[in-house]
Write a protein that binds this DNA or RNA. Structure first.
Length: 107
DNA sequence: TAAGTGACGGCCC
DNA sequence: AGGGCCGCCACTT
């Protein structure tokens, strides 16, 4: 029928899937590369690669941080700035995922 | 084809 | 709490 085994999606489709999920993150909430990857069905590094390629102004890339709550080096300053700007509580230069993590542990 | 690289993550010390 | 190691995976050289 459609796909015989491991979902053979094109690289572009994976990017789209990642952007789609990221756009679902509510303002004031923050997710991680690993969490997004789990929802999409790819590894965290693949998610990072998708976001590094841009994606469009509609994609709130700043709501995606590392599993330990720190921001990726190339965008660290800018990202913390944007997060603080939308009311995300920061502990130093680290996001408190226990408080604003998304999705909720139920996923 | 092999080796290097990166917006990562989990484990161990 | 901080830092090193190694595994992962797609892309580049």
């Amino acid at each position: 029928m459609r796909s015989p085994g491991p979902v053979a999606r094109s690289a572009e489709d994976v990017d789209e899937a990642v952007f789609d999920v990221v756009e679902t993150i509510p303002p004031g909430r923050v997710s991680t590369y690993g969490a997004i990857g789990r929802l999409v069905g790819v590894g965290p590094r693949r998610v990072a690669r998708a976001l590094s390629g841009g994606g469009g102004a509609a994609v709130p890339w700043h709501r995606v941080v590392r599993a330990d709550g720190t921001a990726a080096e190339p965008v660290r300053v800018r990202q913390l700035e944007l997060l603080a700007g939308e009311g995300v509580p920061l502990r130093g230069s680290r996001v408190d995922l226990g408080a604003v993590g998304w999705p909720d542990d139920g996923w």
